[in-house]
């Protein structure tokens, strides 16, 4: 499961019923959960539909880089685990679409927006998986970063989103552990295997740090999301937590974090060097290494499945007609 703070600018909110809006905020402040049929400000609904559907698209597109290695997994054990993991990502996407739909969006319109390239998904999936070690790094770091993002979302003010996240987080721990196990095996293997692990870490480290979104001073509407308790920690706070958790894990593997400026401060925090935010912007704008491939693969899968959806709908309709006729007899 993969979230990302994308922070696209919010349009100006309409004039809302001030009384209802203040009652709504009071419920949020009292840590009450908001449920689908409750009154909510239009901007809250819109923010959630955008965030939850982006999150869902990320899960679905996220199956592609890993699916790439299912047939080439080095053993049956690894293959079974990777298959189960990719199936989980699909499941996470579906829980999330269902949560977004409780806000009044239809599945078809959400999926169409993604296929049309109008909806965003996590930038991380626009990078290629060149070697088997990339599968290890994805589990360990990409899922690790996703867990950092998702644990606070289990307490998000919107009930259906929070409940979906609880389910997802329970399943996510396996993903990270299987990734770390792959890394550990490679790092204890031959010199070539260890070099492959280091190379994968070198390529993924910076894109993974970008998963937490732009730095706090550049982030436009974290304020509203924080006020509404959709977001509980800032991008930089989550990034720091992730780095502090990850550096010792890399040290245990005997790998080097590809950041010459990484140092530990007096409080024990690992401080990173500058992140290339231009690369992040480029990838989000559609110019990452795999953006076009990913969308093309999703469009092809959707088009190839069209006859199945049509046949299933036609069969359901035929059965329903027959039942009606039988009931009328």
């Amino acid at each position: 499961m993969y979230t990302q703070a994308l922070n696209s600018p919010e349009e100006g909110s309409l004039a809302e019923d001030a009384v209802r809006a203040s009652r709504f905020q009071a419920r949020i402040d009292a840590e009450e959960r908001i449920e689908p049929n409750d009154w909510m400000p239009a901007a809250y609904r819109k923010t959630l539909v955008r965030q939850i559907s982006q999150h869902a698209h990320s899960e679905i597109v996220g199956m592609l880089p890993e699916g790439n290695w299912i047939t080439r997994a080095p053993s049956l054990r690894r293959k079974a685990a990777l298959l189960a993991k990719v199936q989980d990502e699909c499941g996470h996407g579906l829980y999330l679409y269902a949560a977004a739909e409780t806000l009044g969006a239809s599945r078809e319109e959400l999926v169409d927006a993604m296929l049309a390239g109008k909806a965003k998904y996590s930038s991380i999936f626009n990078y290629p998986t060149l070697t088997w070690a990339d599968i290890g790094v994805i589990g360990w770091l990409v899922d690790g970063a996703a867990i950092m993002n998702q644990i606070p979302l289990c307490r998000c003010s919107y009930g259906p989103y929070a409940r979906a996240m609880i389910r997802v987080c329970k399943e996510e721990s396996f993903h990270q552990r299987q990734g770390y196990e792959i890394m550990l095996t490679l790092c204890r293997g031959t010199a070539e295997q260890k070099a492959m692990a280091q190379d994968a870490l070198n390529r993924w480290w910076w894109p993974v740090l970008m998963m937490f979104g732009p730095p706090d001073q550049a982030s436009q509407h974290s304020d509203t999301s924080t006020k509404w308790k959709i977001k509980r920690f800032s991008n930089d706070e989550l990034r720091q937590k992730f780095i502090d958790a990850t550096v010792p894990q890399a040290q245990y593997l005997g790998l080097t974090i590809p950041d010459p400026e990484m140092t530990q401060d007096e409080q024990g925090h690992w401080r990173h060097g500058p992140i290339d935010w231009n690369e992040f912007k480029q990838v989000l704008a559609g110019n990452g290494p795999c953006n076009r491939d990913r969308l093309a693969a999703r469009r092809k899968a959707h088009a190839d499945g069209a006859w199945v959806r049509e046949a299933a709908a036609a069969y359901a309709e035929k059965r329903a007609r027959r039942q009606m006729a039988q009931a009328a007899e």
């Binding site: 199936q87 499941g91 829980y95 269902a98 599945r107 979906a164 359901a316």
Partner: peptide, 17 residues
């Protein structure tokens, strides 16, 4: 939770998965 399916049989199978 919830899911989309054209009929009850497919809904049960999808729910299982």
């Amino acid at each position: 939770g919830s899911l989309h399916a054209p009929d009850a049989t497919m809904a049960l199978q999808a729910a299982r998965d």
